[in-house]
Design a protein around this nucleic acid. Structure first.
Length: 405
RNA sequence: GGUGAGUUACUCAAGCGGCCAACGAGGGCAGACUGUAAAUCUGCUGACUAUGUCUUCGAAGGUUCGAAUCCUUCACUCACCA
């Protein structure tokens, strides 16, 4: 293959799924330089030290970093331990509690374990921004704040809104983007990747690199935010609409299948390793009716489970799922509990964690949501006799109980 | 610092002395229909072995037979003025 062709192909992969790119020329030059002279460049992405549980939303970014690793990018995996003390004002987040050094280290270890499922550990550095921000000092901070003015800071959407409606904006929130931008200065960074919600902060890096006369001006790539399982909000742990990469194969599989058909295409674009062309063809097949939308979604689920576990477990997850929900069989793996004979069914359900309260349990019994050995229970006051049973709440909560006399 | 408005369940938001465990909407849970999809329809949505009891309407006191509703103090939020 011609060199130029290789370069074009690499750029195609790099740009895939990006929402917006700033300074595309710079990006192209870096990649070209890598192919021609084998010179690497740095790619920075920032992560919050408080959230070491990665979910698919994070992997959109990580997969993009992995792509860069293939084409000369050396990843600066930045853990914002210093900036976490302030809390990113982007969106609606509140002030966060400061973490101790130990907590940060523990979290970063956990990051490593998870991140290496996607990234090549040989081509990346994990860095902490406290390394240079601790040393910045008050005088350094004053210098930093000179490089930006309030009027421009207020141009940022969320600041503007809050300012106009008279809500409070603390000075520290103004400093946050500056510090994040300073990270790029300190790292002499070439490219930064972040979510679209980070646009302002990402561009700040460019601005400050220019201000500090670093002779560098990072290119910026913005990735769209992955919508969560509810199909409305961005995927986040606090909203509970996430798929964690450390979750069980069965759980991941089931969660992927529970998203809406429409949303599954978005997931295809951002998470699948299929080419855009292949995905477009799948879409056509579904529209024509030659491919059932559920099958398309099943394939996506299989692909995702395979990435974080393996193909065998993915297939098992599928057959398990089909068994339970298509054929109405019981799951092969259920939590098991031992109870005493004569226990009230509602109490039993609470004790084993299938219901939050006996009140809720009663309501569910009334509505026919509780099953014992797959038989609907209608008696609210039912007492369990000794023996072994499978208790079920709704369609997806199961438990095996052994009742002893 | 002054003046005024507000603080209600997961969220928004009614209620302004008894009919209030608190209208309505969203969310959530469950049932029907399905592909555990979407859409739609229905029910539920403080706790308690329960036609009753207990704890909730920013916090603490008070008035009253009776308070989310009235009074006092405190805390917080917002608006206008300085």
């Amino acid at each position: 293959m011609e060199l130029q062709e290789k370069i074009d192909e690499a750029l195609g992969e790099i740009l895939r799924g990006c929402e917006e790119v700033v300074d595309k020329k710079k990006l192209e030059a870096l990649v070209q330089n890598y192919f021609e002279n084998n010179e690497t460049y740095t790619v920075k992405a920032g992560f919050d030290p408080t959230a070491p549980d990665l979910h698919l939303g994070h992997t959109v970014l990580l997969q993009k970093l992995a792509t860069f690793q293939k084409f000369g990018g050396v990843i600066k995996f930045l853990i914002g331990d210093f900036t976490a003390m302030i809390g990113d004002p982007t969106g609606k987040s509140e002030t966060r509690k400061a973490l101790t050094r130990e907590e940060v280290l523990v979290n970063s270890k956990s990051y490593e374990e998870q991140v290496f499922k996607i990234l090549d550990s040989q081509k990346m550095d994990i860095v902490f921004n406290s390394a240079w921000l601790d040393k910045l000092g008050a005088d350094g901070l004053i210098v930093l704040t000179r490089f930006f003015n309030v009027a421009r800071m207020l141009e940022r959407d969320d600041f503007e809104k809050r300012y106009k409606s008279g809500q409070s904006i603390s000075i520290s929130e103004f400093i946050y983007p500056l510090l994040q931008g300073y990270d790029s200065v300190a790292l002499k960074n070439d490219i930064e990747i972040g979510g679209t919600d980070q646009k302002f902060n990402l561009l700040m890096g460019r601005h400050l690199q220019r201000s500090y006369n670093t002779n560098k001006e990072q290119a910026v790539i913005m990735m769209p935010l992955l919508v969560g399982l509810d199909g409305v909000n961005k995927m986040s742990k606090s909203l509970g609409n996430y798929i964690g990469i450390n979750e069980e194969p069965n759980t991941i599989y089931a969660k992927v299948l529970s998203i809406s058909d429409e949303l599954s295409w978005r997931y295809y674009e951002l998470l699948s390793e299929k080419t855009l062309k292949e995905i477009a063809m799948l879409k056509v097949d579904v529209t024509k009716g030659t491919l059932h939308p559920k099958v398309a979604k099943e394939n996506l689920a299989l692909e995702i489970v395979t990435r974080f576990h393996n193909e065998e477990l993915a297939k098992l997850a599928k057959s398990e799922f089909d068994n339970v929900f298509k054929a109405n069989q019981l799951p092969t793996d259920m939590p098991e509990f031992t109870l005493c004979s004569g226990i009230w069914i509602a109490q039993a359900l609470v004790d084993i964690g299938l219901e939050p309260s006996t009140s809720q349990a009663r309501r569910d019994i009334k509505q026919g949501a509780i099953k014992i050995d797959q038989v609907k229970l209608s008696d609210e006051k039912y007492l369990l006799k000794s023996g072994e049973y499978v208790l079920q709440v709704g369609k997806r909560k199961f438990a095996k109980v052994k009742v002893e006399s």
